[in-house]
């Protein structure tokens, strides 16, 4: 699987545009970070299978990715883990060993998509100013 394919797949899985996940000026390099974790944690053969199935989809959208990948007993848990990395920065152990789940890095934690999705900021990482909480947030968020 190439990084480019990983970003395409991630976009459909997360609901966010490729340009959000891998912006032009990519200072955080999250896609590289998560792609590396994937390659470290999952057997090459399985990633190759994921690659083949994804690239073989004639119309790769949310519905087909869901039926062909997310609901697959082998590829599903991996796809969900990719979503979890993007949303919370966590890699969940795939073999029911919760003690071996981990936060990928502090950059991953601070960039978890779940926070901006719910109009908030990661707990412990706010870039806002005093009193911002007194009024409702801007709820315009661009998604796929």
């Amino acid at each position: 699987m190439t990084l480019e394919t990983f970003v395409s797949l991630s976009s459909i899985l997360t609901g966010y545009a490729e340009s959000t996940l891998k912006p032009g000026a990519d200072t955080q390099k999250l896609s590289e970070l998560y792609f590396n974790v994937l390659n470290k944690e999952v057997a090459a053969q399985t990633i190759s299978q994921l690659n083949t199935v994804f690239l073989g989809l004639s119309n790769p959208d949310e519905a087909t990715v869901k039926t062909q990948i997310v609901k697959d007993s082998i590829l599903g848990p991996i796809a969900k883990n990719i979503i979890q990395m993007w949303y919370s920065g966590i890699w969940y152990n795939l073999n029911d060993k919760p003690d071996e789940s981990y936060v990928v890095s502090s950059i991953a934690y601070k960039n978890g998509l779940v926070w901006s999705t719910i109009y908030a900021h990661p707990m412990g990482y706010s870039e806002e100013t005093f009193g911002y909480w007194n009024t409702a947030p801007n709820t315009n968020i661009t998604t796929n």
């Binding site: 899985l13 997360t14 966010y16 949310e62 599903g76 719910i118 796929n144």
Partner: peptide
């Protein structure tokens, strides 16, 4: 099995 835009909408 909730993913993509459906996931965003659910969280929101």
């Amino acid at each position: 099995d909730i993913i993509g835009v459906e996931l965003i909408e659910k969280l929101q």
